[in-house]
Design a binder for these strands. Sequence first.
DNA 1: CGATCTTACGGGATTCGTAAACATA
DNA 2: TATGTTTACGAATCCCGTAAGATCG
Lengths: 304, 304
Amino acid sequence: MPINLSTRELRAFVTLADERSFTRAAAVNHLSQPAFSALIRGLEQSLGARLFDRTTRSVELTAEGRGFVHAARRLLIDAEAACDDLQAHAARRRGRVAIAVLPSLAAGWLPPLLADFHQRFPGIELDVADVLSDACLERVRSARADFALASTRAGAPELRTEDFCRDRFHVVCRRDHPLARGRRALTLADLAPHPIVQLARSSSVRQYLEAAIYPAQLRTMLELDQLSTVAGMVRAGLGITVVPSLTLFHFEHDELVARPLDSPGLERQVFVVRRADRGLSSAAQALYELLLRERPRAAGRRRQ
Amino acid sequence: MPINLSTRELRAFVTLADERSFTRAAAVNHLSQPAFSALIRGLEQSLGARLFDRTTRSVELTAEGRGFVHAARRLLIDAEAACDDLQAHAARRRGRVAIAVLPSLAAGWLPPLLADFHQRFPGIELDVADVLSDACLERVRSARADFALASTRAGAPELRTEDFCRDRFHVVCRRDHPLARGRRALTLADLAPHPIVQLARSSSVRQYLEAAIYPAQLRTMLELDQLSTVAGMVRAGLGITVVPSLTLFHFEHDELVARPLDSPGLERQVFVVRRADRGLSSAAQALYELLLRERPRAAGRRRQ
DNA sequence: CGATCTTACGGGATTCGTAAACATA
DNA sequence: TATGTTTACGAATCCCGTAAGATCG
């Protein structure tokens, strides 16, 4: 049967050691003097050791009590620090949120939302992993991320997947390009005659695109690694390109026009993935709700 | 109004985090399940933060609670260590006693008593300063010693002086020396014709002796620093010596005889000196009582 | 005699355990 | 339905504050 000990008792003990008077220490602790006396007596009794040598005129720590004071002070400080820390985390004054987000979302859509979040909760550390879908899932599974925005469902049973938004593909071309005229959505057939500037085969967007239109193929004329370079090439009139709508911010330029591309199955689904067995921290929950509230609505109509 | 927190609550919290079941955790804490549930609820309420996500089928820590577990475990360990330490000190299983004792007492009378003490309280560290009287008092005043056995009263008001024992002087000579015959106490007049082997003028014994017999003087023929050397000289027949009875153990030898020396005022008083404002530690009190119980009774009759 | 700690005691809040209600897999 | 948590409630306990008692300077 282990001992019981409360911070109230420790505080009483420490103040009595400081004040060396039951009357004053009782006042400090907002107790009547007899109640305070009983509190100290109870503490001594449960500890099994005298802490004070008291006569009616003087109250002094015993040698053993003198040693215990230091431990009591430290215990009080540690306990208060632990409570403060807990409360700060619960109140989102401190904490850390780690998320894993597809690069296409992380670059254009996410930054203003993170800025908003940081302004509302300046004490929260943020950790964004802008990695591909599988890496996103792995981060959540290994608890290195609180949740993820990925383009594949999670297979593991400890992960829970929910729909987040849909990402349509768009054709981007120069304003003076034949495809720039007209308002209706384009089809794969419309693209056939035109050479296309694409991302490298290693990119997930390219892989997704090719898988979605299979067995049809696009007329690739140039492969690049960075979307911003693709934009430059398209602006220079080297060709057109096809990209997910969430990356269109790379192509916002007067000389360029984006038109939606309609094709069966050519629509990338984005998911929210989180652990099924544990809830989100208070801070993570707040970011989660913000992102869900501000999620991309209709692909292609988003404006900077 | 600072928060209150008890080890009982922390233990309940930690066991629930471990067991992940109110029923099992309640059993561990020897409480009915509803009472245990109320305990946790009260803890969450006073902390102002949810600690567990509970459904009827599962109990899991919240993210904030997960952080608090570590702090709680450490707090429990620290609190228990502090209590154990206090109890060990009170029970004299641990601790430290520092005393300051006149060299004459420290060398002969003290050792067997310290051995006895150490056997009864093997966990108590002992620190004996075998220094002269003024240094003894200084050690107590500066709290480097719990108490002291000294030959001068303390002047400082924060020190309390009490009688400890009286130390008579003895004449030591060879068994074949003229002074060895007879049983009565000797007087200064008896010593006059005989050359004397003495300690150096810097020694307190020598100073005390000369002050006590002033204006009379002894016929010093040889001065030495160590009492054991004095003993050797006396055994070799170089002369006689005069020493406090408490140092007679240096002279216990078949060839030597000790006879008390009677002279007005020639009696060294030994005092116990301790701080007036604070009590002794439990361990120091035990040693204090042992030394008082075993203090040298009648000078000169003490046997090894 | 005055200041201060301890003891005595009645009232109120807290906490406990039993029993019933409620919720999920 | 079965397991496990929460709610309801009477009883025991604990704790507080007032008042009286004891003790030392």
